[in-house]
């Protein structure tokens, strides 16, 4: 697969993915908006630069693996996979519809390029750790990435996975924590404490790098650093803004699980104008 090498082209791709996300969600009439918009720069950086993958060789044993633990962020990953050539872009508009391959939450069996099904929180990092363990057993050098939401650090099973990966020094494992500070019931620290997140990971034997999750250069550099660290798993705490790119959604936790056109807020335009307004802002 041909990589995008300039920051400008990657930024444009992130913007395209955001447009895909709001369009497909508005068409579906339900789904999660804030998280996927906040992850667009990470998705663009990973699928169009960092990952060693090729849609023509989906099952290449030496490919990099990107797992997603927070299955509700499906729209951004579907958009990235489609734009990367894993399936037709036109199919994005079938999201959440009867008979569609694009299920509401990420489905490995139906969507080409998806490494594992995900939905119930607190499971994906374990799956990624199992993958990294298998790579170590087989002497493979591919990198295993796992995108984890900050909210799912409430799950005890997430910490079982963190402990396991640290204990076995799974050096080819990189967790990318989407630190967007929101979850369904409100700001993360109000719902249940996650801090000090960096120190928690470090205490379990991980190397931690904090980055701006909207700075594509930082994302790429951190992934390269993570690959080079060796000896231990690496956690990239990516600080992101939920709803990034759409001013009436940015930072507002109420857009966590609502599609454009589905919520009245003080800042938002009328429901029937929300998609149009979002797309206008995402014009490049």
């Amino acid at each position: 697969m041909k990589k995008l090498t300039t920051l400008d082209s990657l930024s444009r791709m992130a913007n395209t993915l955001r447009r895909d996300v709001v369009t497909m969600l508005a068409e579906a009439g339900s789904g999660h908006t804030a998280g996927p918009l906040g992850l667009a720069d990470i998705a663009a950086a990973m699928y169009f630069n960092v990952l060693n993958i090729d849609p023509r060789r989906k099952n290449d044993p030496d490919r990099d693996r990107l797992f997603v633990s927070c299955g509700h962020t499906a729209p951004i990953w579907y958009a990235a996979l489609a734009r990367a050539g894993f399936f037709p872009v036109e199919e994005l508009k079938t999201l959440r519809k009867l008979g569609s391959r694009l299920q509401g939450h990420i489905d490995r069996l139906t969507v080409p390029g998806v490494e594992s099904t995900a939905a119930s929180l607190g499971q994906g990092l374990s799956i990624a750790a199992g993958c990294a363990y298998a790579a170590a057993m087989d002497g493979k050098n591919y990198q295993t990435y796992c995108v984890v939401s900050d909210g799912e650090h409430d799950e005890g099973s997430t910490w079982e996975a963190v402990n396991f990966a640290g204990y076995y020094k799974l050096q080819h494992l990189t967790a990318i924590v989407d630190r967007n500070n929101i979850q369904i019931d409100g700001p993360t620290e109000k719902v249940m404490g996650k801090e000090p997140l960096r120190e928690r990971y470090e205490a379990f034997g991980w190397h931690v790098i904090e980055i701006d999750g909207h700075n594509i250069e930082q994302i790429i550099d951190a992934c390269q650093e993570a690959r080079a660290i060796g000896e231990k798993p690496v956690c990239l705490i990516a600080h992101t803004i939920p709803g990034k790119g759409v001013d009436f959604m940015e930072g507002d936790y109420r857009w966590h699980g609502v599609a454009p056109g589905g919520l009245d807020t003080e800042k938002a335009p009328p429901k029937n104008k929300q998609l149009e307004a979002a797309l206008r802002q995402l014009h490049y």
């Binding site: 594992s116 374990s126 799956i127 199992g130 363990y133």
Partner: peptide, 11 residues
């Protein structure tokens, strides 16, 4: 779930 990750890689 670690077993799932292993299984997806052919174990």
């Amino acid at each position: 779930t670690v077993a799932v990750g292993l299984a997806l890689q052919g174990k």
